[in-house]
Design a protein around this nucleic acid. Structure first.
Lengths: 392, 392
DNA sequence: CTGACTTAGTTTTGTAGTCGAAGGAAGTGA
DNA sequence: TCACTTCCTTCGACTACAAAACTAAGTCAG
């Protein structure tokens, strides 16, 4: 399945954007859309009519007058078409059903065991998507998203060749190497399935949600693993092989250089990922079982944990400095579970300001990604919607 | 002067591309253009007619039949409109007049003394452009490019805020900080002037010349200084402030870390630029006066010089590895005077392959930029042409 | 030399997307 | 009640492109 990037009409006044404006409440009437999109009123009317006739939009009575004729309010139909989204993580997966504007209708977090292999994991998650969308007759759970399923987007915590939907040499995903996610899913559901890296999806979600007016953005996802997603000229940049943003195995200075699952030593992932922090703390004799424990220690001001977090922040900042000099984004935002870790963020910031060209940091925003756990499925949904609504 | 990037019709079948195909000989007839561009014959005819009426294209008799009607050959008029281009370097400037297809009509290399300041240097170079274009009545030199000047493109070996045409904190350019090149030139010539970083121009020139079919490319310019230019989705990526690609002050591991003109130590520029090699060799007591001397030493297999070149190559490779992982380009090409330095190139290659994600290097081309000295002015010309022909 | 075929390019017509102007619909406020 | 505002639609025009039909000009087999 070869799927293009979001066509450019996603960027200015395309049907998806109109939909999004209505959904987010930025626009309530055709006149609003005309103002926002810069399109002429006539064009907006035409487009809106098309969307209504496709059932993607509906009229919702008259609004409040602002000194003239009352606007005919627009709304995204509830119970309309939905897309499914899966954001697979190292230990948990966020599964959701979202409407065509990218709003979460239903979502649930499930524990997963990556090591059970792709068939088992993806099979279960696809079943869960079906439950969220159709409702589960046995339990009468779910089902408030009773629209027709139009597509499924899946985020994978490892390198994905987006053009083919295949996973390529992931670390920490035994049994998944070379697995063709798109093909597997195509056999299970009869709607388009789009597969991408989890950091890319977070980036897309964050950009569409918080930074849609910015052209160039870099999003770091720092959780169990560490990755990034790149927005260039308002569009997700995947690069030649679809591996763009995968900075997990960039080398950073660290003494001693911790060995990485990839076989090298001193990789960013081996220094600054959540998994690395757990490992390092245990080696220091601190009894911590998982990332949650590490974060708790840091929040409690544990000396060893905090020191490691700072080191991680410097490592991320070191790599990010090169990225910022090279790419000169308007914003760098950090998400994932480690994003709430203050010492890490502070060291990252400091390193970034120290090592970047003044011109590059002059107006650079360095932020925490906004409210987090649904960004992945939001991004996945956007990807699917971009594909599906374009075809409509 | 705010100037947009090349509009997207530069990418597929726009007037500039038609022009370029004719100029490069890729297309000789309207039928060729139709095949190459994918546009319908009628559209091509229309466009070609417009170009002819603007004097940007002309008919040049009938071609050879291929079994049917003979094509009416197209050509870019000689002696037609031209653009001026200046590629300013640390010690020399390449000045040229190019036709609207980007072909060099006249070019000359002049010695410059950057430290004379922007007014003197740019004034002299603009005068030289005028001479190349109009011919010098006094000497009857030049003047084979007797068309009308449509614009001037200027490459600066330092950070340029492309949107304003202003130079921002350059190293090795005393007296140029904050200078508004565009405004200065606007007072001297009455055609549009476009200013950009020299590495960006080299990148654009190289991409248009050799890699126009590739979407994502990174070009390193390693000469007296060191910089890079980025092509993303077929277009020059300048980033938020126009400083994208400026990797000269990224930190690399070096022991001892040589001090940089920017005040920090261990910058890429302080390790791997031509200026750095000269400095390092002299500190080792080798009597070498300039980059040419260094390159000669390396070619002669001098032990110290070669070791430094290898170290430089590793340093470039180290930064480039992050860039390749992050950006995942289809090609990385190196230009500038150090590009011909085998030991440097070899170490760079090795470091790159060692430190990059296999997926990212799997199909990555690592090349030397093709035949070099006119790439800068070619890129400058393309930039101007993109601006001028669009307006026509 | 003739007629079938091939390639080149133009003309005509049609379609899609957009805009601007004009105007109707439905309100507010003096 | 009337002027004015805001909202939205209708209609005519323009642009960019394409498809098809057509003209032009050649090759080649018989």
């Amino acid at each position: 399945m070869t799927i293009d990037d979001a066509p450019r009409d996603a960027l200015r006044g395309g049907p998806r954007e109109l939909l999004r404006w209505v959904a987010t409440g930025a626009a309530v009437s055709r006149a609003d859309l005309s103002r926002l999109s810069g399109l002429s009123p006539s064009t907006v009317s035409q487009r809106v009519e098309a969307l209504i006739s496709q059932g993607l939009l509906e009229e919702a009575g008259a609004g409040r007058s602002r000194g003239g004729r009352r606007p005919r309010q627009l709304a995204v139909p509830t119970g309309g078409a939905v897309v499914g989204a899966i954001d697979l993580g190292a230990h948990h997966a966020r599964v959701g059903a979202l409407d065509l504007s990218g709003r979460v209708v239903q979502a649930r977090t499930l524990p997963v065991r990556i090591e059970d292999g792709p068939e088992a994991v993806l099979g279960a998650l696809l079943a869960e998507v079906a439950t969220l969308v159709d409702g589960d007759p046995a339990t009468s759970r779910g089902g408030s998203a009773t629209g027709a399923l139009r597509g499924v987007g899946i985020g994978i915590p490892g390198p994905v060749q987006h053009s083919t939907g295949r996973i390529v040499s992931p670390s920490r995903m035994p049994g998944w190497n070379g697995f063709d996610v798109a093909a597997f899913c195509a056999g299970r559901v009869d709607v388009p399935v789009i597969v991408d890296n989890d950091a890319n999806l977070m980036a897309l979600g964050a950009h569409r949600t918080a930074h849609s007016e910015l052209d160039h953005a870099v999003y770091i996802k720092a959780g169990t693993g560490i990755g990034s997603g790149v927005i260039s000229s308002g569009r997700l940049h995947r690069g030649a092989q679809g591996s763009a943003g995968d900075i997990s195995h960039c080398r950073v200075v660290a003494d001693p250089a911790p060995p990485c699952t990839c076989g090298n030593a001193g990789c960013l992932e081996a220094v600054a990922s959540g998994a690395a922090l757990v490992t390092a703390l245990r080696e220091q004799g601190v009894p911590v079982s998982d990332l949650t424990g590490v974060i708790r220690l840091i929040d409690d001001g544990d000396r060893q944990a905090t020191a490691l977090a700072r080191q991680a922040g410097r490592a991320v900042g070191e790599i990010l400095a090169v990225v910022v000099n090279f790419f000169n984004p308007q914003v760098v935002a950090i998400g994932g579970r480690l994003a709430d870790c203050e010492p890490l963020l502070a060291s990252m910031r400091a390193t970034l300001y120290e090592r970047c060209l003044p011109l590059a940091t002059q107006t650079l925003l360095i932020e925490r990604v906004a409210a987090g756990q649904d960004l992945g499925i939001t991004g996945a949904a956007h990807l699917v919607i971009d594909h599906v609504v374009a075809a409509a």
